[in-house]
């Protein structure tokens, strides 16, 4: 029946792609990036400058998104905080990948006792919720930009490692790795030339998805007061701050929360787009 499927595929052409997806996803992320990069420049405020005469001023021509309890410009703080959040997320994902990808490759390809040992450690991590792991690490080292990044990275790697490992196991036994061995390729060459390329789409998509999680979990840590410490701002810490005024000035919470929502949405849409684009048949034609 594969013949039938092949005919159907060639005849149908590539399945009509959802064209709105890259536009909406890319647009969202683009606007948010622009906001973070040039926001403080055009608003003209210092993110940490207090102005007690203008506390809790709502959105106005002067303060586009209003001010907080110390009269700091929220537009500027959100832009600067966004940078912090994104940096933390990127760092955390980079750290998680740096641990998980090599480990996943090794355990998946070599198998045996290495595999057994590493995967039991992974199981241990699985038994504890991600955020709890992160909280534990922050608890040990004290809250700061760096520890948040480390904590999230260390909390994420087990999921990622297991994912990479199972993908490697799927590829390892395919005939083309046998073919490479028969040609005389060594272990490392097979990993480099045969297995990594096969995993690349998965890695790219998974990194993107993790990025979304990292943004959310940074917010979670910040909300618990375990993230970036004042006077520095991140989306998480701004959200935590807004909690105090949720009854008197609810718009502060909305302003702090909406960008998180939008960035996670944008990242997830882009992850979808990447997954479609990186489909082996579509990628090469």
């Amino acid at each position: 029946m594969s013949a039938v499927a092949a005919v159907a595929a060639t005849v149908d052409g590539p399945r009509t792609k959802r064209r709105w997806k890259p536009i909406v996803g890319g647009g969202l992320l683009g606007i948010l990036a622009l906001f973070m990069l040039v926001g403080p420049l055009i608003s003209g405020y210092d993110p940490n400058a207090t102005d007690l005469t203008a506390r809790f001023s709502g959105p106005s021509a002067e303060h586009w998104l209003g001010t907080d309890d110390l009269g700091r410009d929220l537009f500027t703080r959100m832009a600067v905080g966004g940078r912090m959040t994104i940096l933390i997320a990127l760092g955390a994902v980079a750290l998680a990948s740096a641990i998980a990808v090599p480990l996943g490759l090794l355990t998946g390809y070599l198998g045996g006792w290495v595999d057994l040992a590493v995967m039991r450690v992974v199981d241990l991590f699985f038994a504890i919720p991600t955020l709890l792991v992160a909280i534990g690490i922050v608890g040990i080292f004290g809250p700061s930009f760096t520890t948040t990044m480390l904590a999230l990275g260390l909390a994420f790697w087990p999921f990622y490692a297991r994912l990479v490992r199972s993908a490697v196991v799927g590829v390892r036994d395919l005939a083309y790795t046998d073919a490479a061995r028969v040609i005389g390729a060594g272990r490392w060459r097979i990993i480099r030339k045969e297995i990594v390329p096969a995993l690349l789409p998965l890695l790219i998509v998974q990194t993107t998805v993790l990025l979304g999680f990292a943004v959310l979990d940074e917010a979670g840590l910040g909300f618990l007061g375990l993230g970036v410490q004042p006077p520095d701002a991140s989306w998480g810490s701004l959200l935590a701050q807004s909690r105090g005024f949720v009854l008197s000035h609810p718009w502060i919470g909305v302003i702090a929360g909406v960008p998180i929502l939008l960035v996670v949405l944008g990242i997830n849409i882009m992850a979808d787009v990447l997954r479609d684009r990186l489909d082996p048949q579509g990628a090469s034609t």
Binding site: L174, A175, Y176, V182, I183, P197, A198
Partner: peptide, 26 residues
Amino acid sequence: MIFQNTQHAFNPRRRIRDILADPYEI
């Protein structure tokens, strides 16, 4: 050796040029 399943005997992400260059490199 030559394999039965031609669909899986080649890495789908590598061009024939790279696949055939392997023996030369190794």
